[in-house]
Amino acid sequence: MPIVAIAYFLFLFAPVLLLALGSFGESWSNTLLPTGFTWRWYEEVAADPSFRRAFVTSLQIVGITCVLNVLVGLPLAYAIQVGAKGGVRLAARLVTLLPVAVPDLVLAFGFILVFSSDQLPWLGSFWLLAAGHLVLTLPYTVTALVADMEQLRLDEYEHAAATLGASFFARIRDIVFPLLGPSLVSSMLTVAALSIGEFQLSNLIAGFLSRPYPVVLLQAFYGATGFACAATIVLLLLAAIASLASSLTSRLSNNKKAAAA
């Protein structure tokens, strides 16, 4: 078994390593590894107007997606966890399964059909793209938060606070938010990582001027290897940082949960 594990870790890191090497290599064609060292590719990516615009668009989309996830996902998760009776539970489970049952591609097709109509002519707009990202990440947020609310035994603390005289708003302010804070941060970082890498929906519904980074990145694959590597590494770094930060905050809150139990 350890052999498989070691081989797997090689498999895991080899593509990333090659991307990194390629992004610094001066030239790489029909050789085992690139030759020379240069920052040129990164400078070119940074100077490219369509990449610059896509980068800014992506950061905006990520920010808005996270904010919307908090505003929409947190109350929904709370409602599901509090009203946790058979039927509601089943509905919640369905919500988490739907995105896997309906591929992004089909959803994108649906967006094209619905939002190119005269009544809802939103296709290609920035806000429709944000809504798409919200729908794709919402099930993740809801599942993660509901699981954390259970694990934190939020209901017990809210009951205790109620007997001590705390009103509904005092309970939300003093108990729910402080206790749920770390897992909310962790979930939003994962949402950020998912949103920044999202391609399958964006590729079909983004307008030409509001294309996010991954959609523009695809064009780079048909150009110089070094440029494509550098552009890919930028995306990889952003996703990896968000994902690692999410893991770390979630570990912190897990330690807290273990201590509370």
């Binding site: 035994r153 017990e156 205790a160 606070a161 001590l164 005289g165 705390a166 206790l179 201590a259």
Partner: peptide, 27 residues
């Protein structure tokens, strides 16, 4: 419950994990 003014000690105590002891008691 919040209007009844009854002190409840729960089976698992339900002390708020993010508050110091005096903050718990002062809540």
């Amino acid at each position: 419950p919040e209007a009844r003014r009854l002190g409840v000690v729960f089976q698992n105590y339900a002390l708020f994990p993010h508050m110091r002891l005096w903050e718990n008691v002062a809540y």
